[in-house]
Design a protein around this nucleic acid. Sequence first.
DNA 1: TAAATAATTTAGACTTATCTAAATTATGAA
DNA 2: TTCATAATTTAGATAAGTCTAAATTATTTA
Lengths: 217, 217
Amino acid sequence: MNTLAEENYLKSIYHLSMGADNVSTNQIAASLNTKASSVTDMLKKLADKALINYTRYQGVSLTPSGEKIAVNIIRKHRLWEYFLVEKLNFKWDEVHDMAEEMEHISSAELIDRLDEFMDYPQHDPHGEPIPDCNGRFKSPELKPVSALTVNDQGIISGVRDHTSAFLQYLDKQQLTIGKKIAITEIIEFDHSVVLQIENKKEVHISREVANNLLIAL
Amino acid sequence: MNTLAEENYLKSIYHLSMGADNVSTNQIAASLNTKASSVTDMLKKLADKALINYTRYQGVSLTPSGEKIAVNIIRKHRLWEYFLVEKLNFKWDEVHDMAEEMEHISSAELIDRLDEFMDYPQHDPHGEPIPDCNGRFKSPELKPVSALTVNDQGIISGVRDHTSAFLQYLDKQQLTIGKKIAITEIIEFDHSVVLQIENKKEVHISREVANNLLIAL
DNA sequence: TAAATAATTTAGACTTATCTAAATTATGAA
DNA sequence: TTCATAATTTAGATAAGTCTAAATTATTTA
């Protein structure tokens, strides 16, 4: 088995790999709130275990076995988040830190039973896809509101920013996962967006919010 | 907050305190599978934090704040065990190791919601009482079968031995928590006991089993 | 009650994961 | 293409928790 620190590094590298091909030492350090020198040490260790591909000064990528571990941690994180929201009635902005601890509970049998208990949910409370017990999942093609044009419509299906502040704002505006929205107007001056929720309420959101709110068309 | 190692020491000291007044270094070492020298180091640290009363060569006891932490960990352990058995359908002999990890999840809010979700259970799957959110619980007066005499009857309410082997044996004999039993005969030669379950099946158990099976009269 | 034995503690070392400061390698601008 | 700067790595240190071996204190037994 792997230590807690190792698991967190693998998860971080996995998330950072979404954007670029190779992940840099500094990116990892920033995402884990550590120093670059600590990252270098850990990268050597993970490379020794054949969980990452690493050559000095060239950044890293996950090997298949490293990715498998990372996806499994993400599966556990998202299933626990779903549990906390759906069974224990936490709000979507409250669950991240708890799931961050729970994702390291090791038993595979436990997580598979939890999955079954909740009837195999496909998405966590923030719209992220939940990998199945074989690590498979499909990430739907989502677009930020800022990439849409007037009269486009779709379903709110995810967020880029997972901070409490952002999620609470969305709650207040009733911009929650699953809601159908349509673009009413785009203000050229500041790229803010006016949209209609479920053919009723109209809300006006800033460019920044539009950038962080993801829609399935 | 306290580290995982600290929490495990406090829990161990708590459990060992049930029998005697002061707990010895060697007892702790045995229960945690470490060396006495490691225990001494940790005892100094816990004493510095005012979680235990410790004087060299004299053994230790928990302070009120140490006991509070220990009871809270035990509360979490037993609630998670209940969850695993009642919600995820694990057997009572399968849950200990998983709960051993889960008891260290820190959020108090989480554990209180879990308690509520399961409707405030009073006992874990092995019959141990579950402390409430204020750390209060009552341990019922239980007697081992070996302390009963012919014609005594009562309810199976706990076990002393929590090993898989013992619990699986009890399952097979249908000697599970909640069952009503009556003592039919005590064999003087080897102190084995014949008892009747729910006025039906008769089983013959060894002295050792009788010693580890607890009854509420 | 003194010697033998058992229990406990101390001393010094190791591992993991981290850090700071210095050295090295890459990169981008002139 | 070279130099300044940014990114990364190395060297050496620290803290937590553990270990072995040696020293110390308690306890038991004769």
